[in-house]
Each structure stands twice: as structure tokens, then as C-alpha cells.
Design a protein around this nucleic acid. Structure first.
Lengths: 207, 207
DNA sequence: ACGGGCCCTAAGCGCTTGCTCAGGTTCGGG
DNA sequence: CCCGAACCTGAGCAAGCGCTTAGGGCCCGT
């Protein structure tokens, strides 16, 4: 009865992308964007990875930017879902903060290809699309800030600067997407555990 | 008699880039790369910002990639210098770690335009150039790891996973370049102070 | 049997890219 | 007064870019 059961939306990564061909293209785009970056990726490369001709892409997506937006939108939705699930999981503020960091970090490590695109190609999006995504990120910030604030009020935490510490916690988690390597020596679970511990130390009341 | 006096190599940012025109181009490139990213920046844009024709760029640099390499090399050298100065500053491990984080973070905040290019456009570099830069980053890692290791041995710190914590500390500092905004409410000094405190909490021995 | 909608491709359009090159300007030394 | 070196520009090349278009197979209900 953990907070994240099977509804974490990550068991079948891109199942909701409905025409199978559109999904293949999207997965190919995630790989390509994560590997080379949005601007260095060509539509020919994406289509090639999906085993199609360049023109096929434009049957399912209007532009290359729309592809990035779809990836970014779904990715942020899932990351936020994971965070909120942990935050609403009950228990002390420390337990909820630890679980939030643990699962958020695990998501960024496990799906670091997606996360890299989602977190680091943000300003390749157009004006409106970016604004939409930024709103989702503010909600992530609010979730973490709320837990820390509650912990402070309950006397569990000692945090002189709540917004600053919130920023640092999220920054720490997000940056996992940059350095995490699947071939590396740490599993996503191990990193999640390590980071949950480090974050608890950052906010712990001195005894 | 602080560790970082005026020799921090940042008082006159790009003074060592010798022909004045070459420096103008390099500064323009830093701005453009930081704003749009390496791949989204055109040589015409760089030359335009420097008030020259596109062809002028190729008198001073062989390729666009060489420009990025020069920026990356100088930036990493300076960041590493700042770190090492703090590490060799004397005092307890806690004092040295705090000073290292403080000045490293301050550098990333103050010069966040440069830092963004230096830290996030790494894999736009060619094979050899990237290898050279990666070596500099390993030295940064070694500096932080050494301080933490010494603190543990001296009984000042309680750190179950030294390499993992080192990674987290550096990740935290580096990511400042991504979110720091000059128009924001925090000064580089404030962020450095906040982060030094947070990092000390992460490694502090429980009492 | 067959017509229409759905997917897909081959070919290519218009444009921008990184980069080149012949030629012009500036300037200190003989 | 002229020369050569240092620096820069206008014009443009080949290649690659995002994206479009005309059309061909395939599968469905009727």
C-alpha cells in the first residue's frame, strides 16, 4: 500500500499516445532529443529511427515543435503526478518529504531520457506551449513548498529560508536527469534513497 | 585575507582573449549560446552581435565549435580555480567545504550566462575537446570529494556515501546556472550563503 | 466488386546553415 | 610615397534544414 502503486502512469510509458505510428515517432523523438538535443535533431533522424519516411511525421504532428510539446506535456504531467501522490500519501512531513524526493528522483533516474528532454529543452518550445509547461512546474514547486512549510509549522523541520530550500530540493532532483547514466553503478532506487536522506538532513531540526 | 581575493580571474572577465575583435566575438557568442543554445545560434547572429560580418568570425576562429571550446575551456578553468582556492584555504573541513560551495555557487550565479554555456553545452563539443573538458570536471569532483573525505576522517562529518554526496553537492551547485536569474530576488552572495548552509547540513555529524 | 478513407512514400521546394574567397581598407616602416 | 601585413566585407557555394505535395497501396463497409 505504497503511495505509488501501479497507477504511477509509468508502467506502460507512452501507452496513451494512440495511433501506434504516432507513438513510434514520439519514442524516436524522445531518444533523439535526449541524445543530441532538440535543435541538433532533424526530422529525418526522428522518422528514420521510427522506420518511416520524413513525410510520415507530418501526418501525425503538425511541426517538430509540436512533438516536443507533446513529450514535454506528458512528461511533466507524470512527474507532477508522482510528486503529488507522495505529498498526499499521509504520515509526518518528514515521511512525505522523503517519499516525494524518493519517487521524484526515481522517476528522473529511471526515465532519464524523457526527463532530460522534459527538463532541459524547455525553451525550445514556442511562447504559449512554454507558458503551459511553466505552470506545471510552478505546481511542482508548490507541492514541495507546502510539505516543507507544514514540517516547519509542526516543529519537525528547521528551515530558515523555505522558498530557497524548496528551490534547492527541486533543483537537486531535476539535475539527476542530467548526470544519471543507466550504465552507471547506481540504480534509480539507490539514488532515490540517497537523495531522500540528504534532503531530510537539509531540513532537519537540530537536536 | 579571504581565499578569493582579486586573483579569482573574474575581475576582468575575458581579458586574456587577446585580439580585441576576437574577444568581442567571444563575448557575443557567450550571450548567444546562453540565450538560445549552441545549435540554435547561427554564426551570423554571433557576428552581428559583435558588429561584424559573418566572414570576420573565421579570421579569429576556425569553426563555430572552436568558439564553444574556447569558452568552455576558459570557463571551466576559472570555476576550477575558484573551487581549488577555497579547498586550499585552510581551516576545518567544514570551513573549507562551506567556502568551496559558497564561492563555486557565487561564480555560477554571478556569471550564469557563461556558466550555462559551460555546463550545459558540453556535448556540442567534438570528441577530443569534450574529453579535455571532462577531465577538468573530474578534477572538480576530486576537490570536493577530498574535503568531504577529510571531514569524515576527522569526525567532523557523518557521510554514509562519500562519492554519492560529492555528486549531489556538485550537482546542486552546477544547477544554479540553470535557474539563476539576474532579475530575480536573490543576489549571488545570498544564494552562496544559503547553499553553503544546506550543504553543511547534508554532511553534518548528528549530535 | 469497389469506392473512400487512412497511412505512408518519393520527390522536391524554398530557405538557412556553416563556411569560403577575392578584393578592399587601414596603418606602420623604409 | 609605396609596400606588405593585418583585418575585415560582399557575395555566394554546397549542403542540409523543416515542411509540402502528388500519388500509391491497403483495408473497411456495402
Amino acid at each position: 500500500m505504497s503511495t505509488a502503486e501501479e497507477t504511477d502512469g509509468d508502467s506502460a510509458p507512452w501507452a496513451e499516445v494512440t495511433p501506434e505510428a504516432a507513438r513510434r515517432l514520439l519514442v524516436a523523438a524522445v531518444d533523439a532529443f535526449a541524445e543530441r538535443g532538440y535543435h541538433a535533431t532533424t526530422t529525418r533522424d526522428i522518422a528514420g529511427r521510427a522506420g518511416m519516411s520524413p513525410a510520415a511525421l507530418y501526418i501525425h504532428y503538425r511541426t517538430k515543435e509540436e512533438l516536443l510539446h507533446r513529450i514535454s506535456r506528458i512528461g511533466h504531467d507524470r512527474a507532477l503526478f508522482v510528486l503529488e501522490a507522495a505529498a498526499d500519501g499521509g504520515g509526518t512531513a518528514a515521511e512525505r518529504l522523503a517519499e516525494a524526493v524518493r519517487s521524484f528522483v526515481r522517476w528522473h533516474a529511471e526515465r532519464h531520457t524523457t526527463a532530460r528532454v522534459v527538463q532541459y529543452e524547455l525553451d525550445a518550445l514556442g511562447e504559449e506551449h512554454r507558458a503551459e509547461i511553466v505552470e506545471l512546474r510552478r505546481r511542482s514547486d508548490a507541492v514541495v513548498r507546502r510539505i516543507i512549510g507544514e514540517g516547519v509549522r509542526a516543529g519537525e523541520f528547521d528551515v530558515p529560508d523555505v522558498p530557497g530550500t524548496t528551490l534547492a530540493v527541486l533543483s537537486l532532483c531535476i539535475d539527476v536527469a542530467r548526470w544519471f547514466n543507466a550504465q552507471g553503478s547506481r540504480t534509480p532506487d539507490e539514488v532515490g534513497e540517497l537523495y531522500a536522506d540528504l534532503v531530510l538532513r537539509m531540513v532537519a531540526a537540530k537536536r
